[in-house]
């Protein structure tokens, strides 16, 4: 089998007396969409945060392309090529689409103005942002300088996914990307996800929505009581099987 692109080994994370991650393993292979499902409180978010640098695990190791990495903040993970779309989207409502896409990685002008006066190259950033949104089919943008707060929920989600897709060179993590969206908007985001995979970037998808998970995922990581219960192929099991594994109603298949 090919080498996993992102691996977690024996990850442990405790919050006081609560053990959120209990010696959890995790693997993501190149070019796949891996769904992570689990009951509320199973530790999905802790797992994702440990992989994306938002929390530092108490024990265990994370490997990116076979090399051990230690992330102390989301900025570290981002620098390594792991982009995360958080459930809260992590956008500044009063700033423009372009500003938000380039938050923390702004492009400066070349020459004197950029080097000594640190002037931003707004045109370059706007063109890039417009290009990326068009690539993902978020066309008909008239004003890339529109404040994010003037967009609808679906549009904001689209911009957040576009931001991750534009900069995520190795892994993209999506935390409940369709939770707050209507049927139509969810559809669009699922198309975006498939589109990103077709460009060869593996995706970790955390979702409660079984139809969505079964539609796009290549493999499903079932999380239960702080660890990986099993990994199933959505073609071999039904949605009710998956829910049964996740809640403990059914014995997990032997790998």
């Amino acid at each position: 089998m090919t080498q996993p692109i992102l691996t977690g080994k024996n990850l442990v994370k405790r919050y006081g007396k609560v053990t959120a991650l209990d010696h959890c393993d995790f693997e993501l292979y190149p070019g796949e969409i891996l769904a992570v499902i689990g009951d509320n409180g199973a530790g999905k978010s802790s797992l994702i945060k440990a992989l994306s640098g938002a929390v530092v695990p108490d024990a265990g190791e994370v490997f990116l392309e076979g090399e051990q990495v230690k992330f102390h903040s989301p900025i570290d993970a981002r620098a390594a090529g792991i982009e995360t779309v958080y459930q809260t989207l992590a956008m500044s409502p009063a700033l423009s689409i372009a500003d938000n896409m380039f938050m923390g990685r702004e492009i400066r002008k070349e020459g004197f103005m950029g080097k000594y006066l640190k002037q931003l190259d707004k045109k370059k950033m706007e063109d890039f942002a417009r290009q990326k949104l068009s690539d993902l089919g978020l066309m008909t943008i008239q004003n890339i300088n529109q404040a994010v707060e003037t967009l609808s929920g679906g549009q904001r989600q689209g911009v957040a996914v576009a931001r991750a897709a534009a900069f995520g060179s190795k892994v993209i993590i999506l935390d409940e990307p369709t939770a707050a969206l209507g049927v139509k908007e969810s559809r669009r985001v699922l198309e975006l996800i498939l589109d990103v995979r077709s460009r060869g970037i593996p995706i970790i998808l955390i979702s409660h929505n079984m139809p969505h998970v079964f539609e796009v995922a290549d493999r499903i990581h079932v999380h239960r009581l702080g660890k990986r219960l099993c990994v199933i192929d959505p073609k071999d099991y039904t949605m009710s099987d998956a829910v049964a594994f996740m809640t403990g109603a059914k014995e997990a298949p032997v790998q």
Binding site: Y86, T88, P93, A94, M103, E106, L117, L120, K122
Partner: peptide, 29 residues
């Protein structure tokens, strides 16, 4: 006015005031 409008630092000041958690997750120190 120049620094706030045309430099990365200025954009970060606005982002931090807008929503510090979002700014942190988006990669602002």
């Amino acid at each position: 006015a120049y620094a706030l409008r045309s430099t990365a630092w200025g954009r970060h000041v606005y982002a931090v005031g807008d929503d510090p958690e979002a700014a942190q997750l988006a990669g602002v120190n």
